[in-house]
Design a protein around this nucleic acid. Structure first.
Lengths: 229, 229
DNA sequence: TCAAAAGTGTTTGCAATACACCCATGC
DNA sequence: GCATGGGTGTATTGCAAACACTTTTGA
């Protein structure tokens, strides 16, 4: 521990806003803090940057240490610097955001964590510190992202129905979309590969499943597009 | 100086990417460094954050101290953290960007600065440290900004012609636009107030001058729009 | 009268929207 | 056979794009 703290940059931390999608709801990954300040409250996974790593590297490490979530892409959002944002001393925090499929990640509390859990984004969450602000900022980024880059690959299971994808968009943007127009648009990108597989065990006509064409998907990540409603 | 350095957060700095528009060219404000490292090279105005200020406050202070440019709006862009980005020790730097009208700001070198000057963005600039990367990131942000929010108020004189405004857009995006379509589009926002004033002393038909309707301008800043070509 | 930039409208095509009914499945 | 969600096509509208000539002014 003394060795670890020697390497830490004590005034610089990372907070991770990790979004998931499950049961047709947008979710957020939170950890329960083992120690003070704000012991026992549910907070964004976070920690201090080490002298030997970049911020991107720190974000990946910290998320894994807190929650066991690994091998994901984290993107820097904003750096928060309110003077009293952390009660013990001046700490500036760099926020990262990520999208993952909850099904694919086994959660395990880390060293300074007593629990890790998914929360629905639309339930009221009492955040400690300035985490409410950080979360809002990340959500805003997500909403902007969904309009300009394809999304879903990271949030959905490998095989999914168009309705699932539409639900994801509707959850993120918090608005309803026309089914026919949505399908027309999303299929026109040629980013989805229709499979010869269908939903099973549902009490209605089974939906066709699709997967992403990762080449085309990547292509649109690079080029961007303009997805309206 | 010892008092000042006591207050400094020595591992956290700000770098400012300040854009201007003059003679139909997009410009960048650089300072000439008085001391090592990279003494005498032209660099982004920067400095260290104080313990008593937020990042936004630091950016404003640092830009003024470096260049005398004041009373402007600076927006956070990204935080840079390459481990060897600063040669003397580990320093993380938060980049800010701003848009100003060069005519409205009298430049004056600051304490650690021997000179301040506008450079054209399309000339090759040899940046020290990771300033090339920071600059590129800010330019990208500017290009994205120009598509989604009105721009120009901060970069142009109070009264300007539509051609000037179009030139600004063309410089930022580095592409040519159709004059009629540009005018149609920009006027349709009802963001410009036509004046009963015209260019003077030009060897051709004098262009009508306009100014921004600051209420509508602000409205579009808040709502955003989608400006294509 | 010439050069140089200002100013102005119309047509065309594509893409966004709105909209309603039949289909397959499990119970 | 009914409830549940899956799946499909067309007509309309509005916006983006392409495009060329006349006007004004100073030199």
């Amino acid at each position: 521990m003394s060795q670890v703290s020697k390497q830490m940059i004590k005034n610089l931390s990372i907070d991770c806003v990790v979004f998931g999608f499950e049961n047709n709801k947008l979710e957020l990954l939170l950890i329960k803090r083992k120690s003070n300040p704000s012991k026992d409250s549910w907070a964004l996974p976070g920690g201090f940057v080490l002298k030997t790593e970049t911020l991107d590297e720190a974000a990946v490490r910290i998320l894994e240490e807190n929650s066991n979530v690994k091998n994901i892409y984290l993107e820097q959002v904003h750096t928060f610097s309110r003077i009293d944002r952390f009660p013990l001393r001046r700490v500036i925090s760099v926020a990262y955001f990520a999208l993952i499929d909850p099904e694919n990640h086994f959660l395990k509390p880390g060293v300074d964590t007593t629990d890790v859990k998914w929360f629905q984004v639309n339930e009221k969450i009492e955040f400690p510190f300035d985490h409410a602000e950080i979360f809002q900022r990340a959500l805003k980024r997500l909403r902007q992202r969904v309009r300009t880059k394809p999304i879903g690959f990271e949030l959905l299971p490998e095989k999914f129905s168009l309705t699932q994808l539409q639900n994801l968009y509707e959850c993120i943007l918090d608005e309803n979309m026309d089914k026919r127009n949505f399908r027309k648009r999303i299929l026109s990108y040629n980013m989805l590969i229709p499979l010869d597989e269908y939903q099973e065990g549902v009490a209605h006509r089974a939906a066709r499943l699709y997967k992403f064409d990762s080449k085309e998907y990547q292509n649109f990540i690079d080029k961007g597009f303009n997805f309206q409603l």
